[in-house]
Amino acid sequence: MKVLSKDKLSTALNKLSDSAEVFVPMQKGKQSGYFTWKSFEEGQDELMLEALNVYQSPKNAVFPQTERIYGIASQGVEVNIDKTYEDTSANIIFGARGCDVKGIMAMDLAFLTKGYEDSLYKARRSANTIIANACYEPGPNCFCNAMEVNCVEPAGADVILHDVGDGYGWEVKSDKGEAVTALLADILEEKEVKLPAIKPFIQNVDYSGVAEKLKDMFDHPLWDKLAEPCVNCGMCTYVCPSCYCFDIQVKMWGEQGYRFRTWDSCMFEEYSREAGGGNPRGASKERFRQRFLHKLQFFKERYGTPLCTGCGRCMIVCPTDINIVRIIDAVKEAEINA
């Protein structure tokens, strides 16, 4: 198997960064997330390839927190779209865990299927290569195995790294993977490696039948109890590797400006509030229910897979200790009175 020796890691990242923006998990000041290798500051930032999940997922590489759609020039009755934006420059996500790869697979379904292709997402994603990092030792909040993710062989990865101690086994999975492998031809070595055995999951989650059961639980009283602690802060949607809802807004300075899109959250009251004041999800509970039904039922119904990838981030960041695993358990245990 090809192996990337850990002492050649920076050389490899430098090499890849010659032709692409390379997003790598790192601790940057107080933030941890996927930042570009070019922004890495020796001695200050810390590479986090060994950590299971950094705070922010790599979704910003293909779906930035804000991105411009088009430029506007407006003068009196005249108005023009003077520029449209599409970022087709190469980008690589290096070290994404299986749950985060699944997040991008889910966004592919949302943005690229069902009639319309989102041109902004398509541009970035077409130029994107995913180098995943296989997980052999699930963490205390991991339950990707219950959410249709294979954490050792994540579907959608172009290359899969396998940590074998002093190096990473380098498993090529696609043509895009071949292309980045070719860039590292001088760095990768051919070696005999022994892949580690996967350790058992600590969380024991059973999602089977949950999407189907939820169909009859929209008005179930359990939502009142489960939603009660929620303060609708939106942290769960911010750190989620698969939350993709967005808002479209405009920024003008006098006669010039641009329309852009930005991450949005179903936790916020304005998200679904209509101009006339009506809001189908005006109450906190209604928004809470929407989020979990979207994750566990609606997305599965529409696209065939859940929108939760089992990464566990939302359980860690929630200020009121709302836990999607306990919600899945509560749904499993709930009695439905006809």
Partner: peptide
């Protein structure tokens, strides 16, 4: 795509 106008799926 943007999410907000859903009713169920």
């Amino acid at each position: 795509k943007c999410g907000r106008c859903n009713i169920g799926s």
